[in-house]
Design a protein around this nucleic acid. Structure first.
Length: 418
DNA sequence: TCTGGGGTCCTAGGACCC
DNA sequence: TCTGGGGTCCTAGGACCC
């Protein structure tokens, strides 16, 4: 059996743990740069605040309805997430952390367990130890555990937050209940095509023939279909190294000058290099992106990205920043108001094991230098060591006007008790 | 004024190899 | 008249997820 453990309204719930005044109140959490709504409490959903709402358009709506609006506090959410996940590992070693707020669990050798009871134990312990409410869906396959989880979430009174699909009858009932667009792996495009075919629910989808699904879609959808039929097809994935790493941001203002853009790109490149070193990877490929404001239809648009292949893999901030800055200078166009930029590194290989180049390799001094930079930054925090082409005063974080304290990760923000 | 950020996988087609 | 057979690698684009 598989379980999907999902935290309810995760970001909003994290805020509530340390600010109980928010309990029972409508809350909305904003994206980076305080742009749009990316997490809502049940109360905020009920009032009608939509997901993705640009906050500048909805500010008065929030005020009128008493919705508490907060900037996103990723240090807090990341830390709370790892606390929740480590509790799960006490219940079984087979845990796949699927996203910041949900994990799959595989139960091997749990034949004589009462899964409903076990699910309740999981929920109770997470709530007690972290304050985060969760829902648990349990079923014979991953895709079905997702469905079971939705049922637990939708019917809290009847299920007490735990739902188990453990019979053919329950499976059919669940699949007939869930709408096709709510199925994990069926997005907008597939929903449209499936509805044309007359599929309204997950059950209808499972009634299609395997060959039709394979020929008209792909093996991904075929695997999903098998999983929904109760045939375990999707496996528990272990934690793998990332195949691409990106740092991309919208700017607070638009920039038409190359200097500001060079600074941003260098900062993003440095951030990518740092993430690479953290993973123990080096990259062969750097992609630099630059674009104008896509919402301003009346302004001249310019969206470009440029890929660079390196002759040796690197995770040196110096090399990646230098290459990214040179590239952005070559794609920059005079007279455009740029709003967004980014650096992506890919073609990743393990730093301690890659094919050397006969003629050209990284300057051997970079490795110890990066090590020193990383250890200084981790000791003193806040990016004390930067490259000379970065703005030494600013961080790459953008507007965060309604930020809560970093209750669990910054010693100065720990709650004091009188 | 103001509209997020970061990932994965698959497929078709083209270029190339012997 | 009649023009093979079996591969690899790369890329762009399209899906999807949170």
């Amino acid at each position: 059996m598989f379980a999907l453990v999902d935290c309810n309204n995760f970001y909003a719930s994290c805020e509530r743990v340390f600010n109980p005044n928010l309990e029972g109140k409508p809350i909305a959490i904003l994206s980076n740069n305080d742009g749009c709504v990316i997490s809502r409490s049940d109360e905020a959903k009920a009032i009608g605040l939509p997901m993705g709402a640009p906050i500048f358009k909805w500010d008065s709506f929030c005020k009128a309805n008493g919705i508490e609006v907060l900037s996103s506090n990723y240090p807090l959410y990341g830390d709370m997430s790892s606390r929740v996940m480590s509790i799960l590992e006490q219940f079984t070693p087979d845990v796949e952390v699927y996203s910041i707020d949900e994990s799959f669990i595989e139960f091997k050798g749990f034949k004589h367990y009462d899964f409903n009871d076990y699910g309740n134990q999981i929920r109770t312990r997470i709530k007690k130890w972290t304050g985060i409410p969760t829902c648990v869906g349990i079923a014979p396959t991953k895709a079905l555990s997702k469905v079971a989880n939705k049922i637990a979430r939708k019917f809290p009174k009847e299920t007490n937050g735990v739902y188990v699909i453990d019979s053919e009858e329950k499976r059919i009932k669940a699949l007939k209940w869930i709408k096709i667009e709510a199925v994990w792996g069926i997005g907008r495009g597939l929903t449209k095509r499936l509805k044309l075919k007359g599929c309204k629910t997950a059950y209808d989808f499972t009634q299609l023939s395997n060959t039709w699904v394979k020929n008209n879609f792909s093996v991904i959808e075929l695997r999903l279909k098998r999983d929904l039929e109760g045939v375990p097809t999707l496996q528990l994935d272990e934690l793998k190294d990332k195949k691409a790493i990106a740092t991309t941001r919208s700017f607070e203002y638009t920039y038409s000058d190359i200097d500001n853009i060079k600074e941003r790109i260098s900062t993003f490149a440095t951030s990518c290099a740092e993430k690479l070193r953290k993973q123990g990877s080096s990259c062969y490929v750097i992609i630099v992106m630059l674009s104008s404001d896509r919402h301003k239809k009346d302004m001249e648009q310019h969206r470009v990205s440029q890929k660079i292949n390196l002759s040796f893999p690197t995770n040196s901030s110096l090399v990646i920043s230098d290459c990214a800055v040179k590239t952005v200078m070559s794609i920059f166009k005079q007279g455009i108001k740029y709003k967004r930029a980014g650096v992506i590194v890919t073609g990743l290989v393990p730093t301690d094991n890659f094919q050397m180049n006969l003629f050209e390799n990284e300057n051997p001094k970079h490795k110890p230098l990066m090590k020193s930079i990383d250890s200084l930054n981790s000791k003193y925090g806040d990016y004390k060591i930067k490259l000379g082409n970065q703005d030494l005063k600013r961080t790459w974080k953008m507007r965060q006007e309604r930020l809560s304290p970093r209750y669990t990760t910054n010693i100065n923000d720990i709650i004091k008790i009188k």
